[in-house]
Amino acid sequence: MGEHIIEVSSLVKRFGDFIAVDNVSFSVEKGSLFGLLGANGAGKTTLIRMLCGLMAADAGSVSLAGIDVLKNPEEVKMRIGYMSQRFSLYRDLTADENLEFFGGLYGARDTEGAAGRSRILDSVGLAGMENTLAGDLPGGISQRLALACAMSHNPAVLFLDEPTAGVDPVSRRRFWDLIHERAEEGTTVLVTTHYLDEAEYCNDIVLMHSGRIVADGGPDEMKRRIISGPVFEISGSGASFLESVLEDESWVIEFSLFGDSVHIQTEEGMGLIDVKSRLLTLAGNNQDFEIEHITPSLEDVFLRIIDQSESEGEAVI
């Protein structure tokens, strides 16, 4: 176990009767890539705002590099970089001017001279776009500019709130490469996302649901822990019929819909041939389906967790 750079304990935020963040505690290891996951409205943005000192909490505490963020929000400002959900570049300023402005606010040395800024813009793939207005940059590129602006002062912790929302897959990939580079250089990165494939890149993840943390751990460890048996994917036109009869089968531990296909998790030790023959028996006239043994994705894990948490009405960790 490394050193914890962020410690959150029993954090609560209410908006009237609505509890946006409900007694949340977790810690983030220094230099890790930490994912905060959950659906829209799960409380991720509220949580990240409190971690940055942008918003007051109703109860609990946040410590960042030993500083009490909720009591002394100003003291952490130099140590953190924050990219809000709709990162807010000045659309009427050029890429270079945005970087100069944000760098200037932090007193960053690297952004003082045009050469330094141009080097930074190069490193995030904005070479030749120095004088383009931020408002004219395509989504994926302006996100990278926003990242450059948020980390021009080499913060110890980088908070990224849904940095890749609405960005095309190629740009997302490129963005994550940049985040990885940062993490490798020792920056702690806390990122929220609702793309579960992105969560696979993280060292640690926390899953939020209705303001509470319902699961945490490393992606692989979490899969092993939550999904004990093998997982199969059934697709084809017969899948929907099977779905309606599988519920009563005791050997099916869990099943969930993924678009046109159905994922089932069976008792431990069951093989593909065994499962297929059982399904063929059940299917009757609906023999038109295919079955495949798959590695469970985080999506399987999370659907499972959220299912359980909703039916039990409490967190399963």
């Binding site: 940055c52 000192g53 942008l54 100003e74 400002k77 130099m78 953190i80 924050y82 809000s84 959900q85 709709r86 990162f87 807010s88 570049l89 000045y90 659309r91 944000f102 606010l105 932090y106 007193g107």
Partner: peptide
């Protein structure tokens, strides 16, 4: 409105 205020608040600007 544009969200840049949020960005300014998180900087060391007083």
């Amino acid at each position: 409105e544009l969200g840049t205020m949020e960005q300014l608040i998180v900087t060391p600007l007083s």
